[in-house]
Amino acid sequence: MRNTVFILIVSLVAAALFGGALLVRSDYLLFAGYTVLQFVVLATAWNILGGYTGYVNFGSAAFFAVGAYTSVFLHKAFPLPIPLLIAVAAVICGLLGLAMGYLTLRLRGAFFSIATLALAVVLQTVVVNWHYVGGSRGAYILRPTAGPIPGLSYIEYLFLVMLALAALALITARAIEHSRLGIGFAAIRDDELAAEANGVPTLRLKLVATVISGAFMGMAGAPFPYYIGYMEPASAFGLPYAVNAIAMPMIGGTTSWAGPLIGAVLLGSLQQIATVTISSAVNLLIVGLLLVGFVIVAPNGIVGLWQRFFGRNRKDRNKASWRPSSTSTESASGSAASSPSTPSA
C-alpha cells in the first residue's frame, strides 16, 4: 500500500472516530478515548526506537513528563495555543532524545535500558526541585470550558488534538518501516555489528530513532496538563507510562506499526473498563499479567501471531519486494532509494 493511500485511510478513520465522538457527546468517552489515543502515540513512539532498532527505553515517562512540563512552563511564561505547545515539546524532547542518544547509545542491551531509567530519575529530581513549574507540590492548569474551535468543548478539542497526533504517529511509523531508514533500523535490530559492516551508519540511525521517538513522546505529553488539570511530578513521571509504553508494543508486536496500535487499543481500553468497573489500582496488574502471558505464548505479539497463521502472505510480499519485474506493493517511501540522489546517511 502506498503511503498516500495509507494517509487517506488513517484520515478517514480518524474523521469517522471524531464524528462518532461528536454524535455521542459523552465527556466520559472523550476522556477515556483521549487516554487510549495518548497511549497509541506513546506506544508508537517507543516502538520506533525499541521495536525497530531493538533498543529498550525504560525512560518513556521522562520524555512524556518533559513534554507535559514544557506546557506547564510555557503556560506560565508565554501562553501558547496547544498545537504550538506540542511543536515546542517535540523540539525539546527531540533534543533530549539526541542528548540521551549521544550519552547512551554506545551502551547495548540492559546497560542502555538502565541508563534510560537513570535519565528518568535525574529529570524527575530536577522537576521536583524546580519551583517555577510547581516543584513537588505540583501545578494547576485551569483549562477553559470552550475550545478554540467554535462549537467544540475543550475536551472535544483535546480529543481531536490527540486523535491528530495518533494519526501522525502511525503515518510516521509506517513510513519509516517501509523506508530505507526502516531497513537500516531492522538491520541494527537483527545484528548491529553486521549492519555496520554492511555500510549502515548505526550510530547515526540510532540517534535518528531516539530523536523521533523522544519527540513523539514529548508531543503525547504536551496536552496532558490541560487534560488532567493538576499535575505533579509523581503523576507525570509515573510508572504506568513507562510500563504501558513498553507493554503495549510488546503485546501488539514490535516489528510493525500495527503492533503498538493494537496493543494500545487493547490494553488502554481494558484499563479504562477496569477503572470504572473495579478500580484503577488493577490497571498495572492487568498489564503485567497480559505481558507475562504474551511473552510465554506469543513472544512476537499479536502481529507475530497473525504472521504465523498467515505466513504465506508475508512470503509473497517478500517475493514482490525486490524483484525488478514484479508489481511490488512496497510503498513509495520504501524506496527512498528509488530516486537517484546523493546518499545522505
Binding site: 530505507r180 537500516g184 554492511n198 555500510g199 549502515v200 551508519p201 525488478p324 511490488s328 512496497e330 524506496s335 527512498a336 532509494a337 528509488s338 530516486s339 537517484p340 540522489s341 546523493t342 546518499p343 546517511a345
Partner: peptide
Amino acid sequence: YAAGSRRGRHLTR
C-alpha cells in the same frame, strides 16, 4: 547503504 556511496548516488529500485 554501501553500494550507493560507492557509486556516488542511491541506486534506483
